[in-house]
Design a protein around this nucleic acid. Structure first.
Lengths: 236, 236
DNA sequence: CGCCCGCTTGATCGTCATCAAGGGCGGTGG
DNA sequence: CCACCGCCCTTGATGACGATCAAGCGGGCG
């Protein structure tokens, strides 16, 4: 799992902590430990109480529900520089999701005490923490919107456009951040449906798919595609 | 819309502010204004930037998406003592939802400056704010779980049990917090489907329905009902 | 009294899940 | 180097859940 990391440096690189002074970082570092996680390993189960939250240094973590029937629904795919578990830590309630490594990963486990100390010391930090949670909330609301009033095709398009980032025009290459069945679950679809949707979009000339690499031929027309998709039959 | 409210007193009653000193409350009150809203009125539209958030003193507010096709999806029903809009305020991004009064309502509009000042002054307050957002996040994740891996009947049951509150055994009376089509939307169902689900549960002897009043005959067996509902045909 | 609105009930339709095979690609071992 | 196997993805056929369309019903209010 590689050499140990300079925890202080790693912390300082996280967006959340960018503006902390060095002394503050080192205090935070005291309550921070490194976690190595090989692919497939579970970091914590649904129902766990956390007294720290996690930041991804390298690799990729998925957060997901598991239903009694064995179904699984991916809520979030967390990559380097991002963090998770803050809300569960603050709430002191059992987590609703479990966390599993999609690749070999390095995480930082940042203890609650250190965070509380930083909040006490620096109200600007508290605000950044609030902003961070707000971003998370915003994203979740967007998910709810997608699930509840967009069709499968619209969700896929939305996802692609989000990956594409800046609303440029012209064509853009995208690499899917995970295997297709993970993406499908993230979008509340079965792998089969995702496959068919990509196929349709591809046949319509809007994208072209090669494994994990997708080329959006024209961002504009892809984003304007909503509404006329009812003309297309479900299967080509 | 009634007489003006003592803003300080109203603020002091909100859970968020319970533990503030009187001097702090009065500083907060300086940036707080009362909003009266009659039934059906829209408080803010989707896309609005907020530089305050809102607390409900009396009445009821719904937060919802509206889709271009005119569909509407209720995200949240906010009652007295609860608040909304914090995340949008902190984020300084356009709201994804709009807010509309379901009844004649009194709100407090609490300005960002006051909140920031309180955060600067009192880190315990900052923590409570964080806890508040965490609760919100937790709830939203629960919603996502419901939408994505529970059937319509399961969602309705979950909703009823949540309203029932404490997991008592025996029978409990519940009053629906809003009209059925609002509830249906909140649960991502059409009114027709909600009606049928309630009808089925009623025929199974698990609940009885009279207008907005629902009696859960046996909380335990209702909560254990999941799994065997596949035996029931969709329409009785 | 009559109208409107919220709810119910019935019939049909569409989207997506499910079930079931078939391909393609990479890795491993002969 | 080729053969084999596993895994991921695709493709096809079918089915179910819940939406939609369309009436009826009842009760409150003008």
């Amino acid at each position: 799992m590689g050499k140990p990391i300079d925890i202080g440096r790693a912390l300082a690189h996280l967006p959340l902590f960018q503006q902390l002074r060095e002394s503050e970082i080192s205090q935070l570092a005291a309550g921070t430990s490194e976690v190595g996680l090989s692919k497939g390993r579970i970091l914590f189960q649904k129902g766990t109480l956390l007294d720290s939250f996690y930041a991804v240094v390298s690799g990729q973590i998925k957060l997901a529900f598991s239903s009694p029937q064995g179904n699984e629904k991916v809520v979030s795919i967390v990559g380097p520089g991002q963090s998770f578990g803050e809300a569960v830590m603050f709430l002191e309630k059992p987590s609703l999701v479990f966390a599993q490594a999609l690749e070999d990963s390095h995480l930082l486990s940042i203890a609650k005490r250190g965070i509380f100390a930083a909040i006490d010391r620096d109200s600007a930090f508290a605000r950044r923490m609030l902003a961070g949670l707000s971003v998370r909330l915003h994203g979740l609301i967007q998910d709810v919107e997608n699930y509840s009033l967009h069709s499968s095709t619209e969700r896929v398009i939305g996802f692609l456009l989000q990956l594409a980032g800046a609303p440029a025009n012209g064509s853009i290459d995208i690499e899917l951040p995970a295997s297709k069945h993970i993406i499908a679950s993230r979008l509340n679809l079965t792998p089969e449906t995702l496959s068919r949707v990509l196929h349709n979009l591809s046949e319509s000339g809007l994208i072209s798919v090669k494994g994990k690499c997708i080329t959006v031929v024209d961002v504009i027309s892809l984003s304007q595609f909503n509404g006329m998709l009812y003309s297309l039959p479900y299967s080509s």
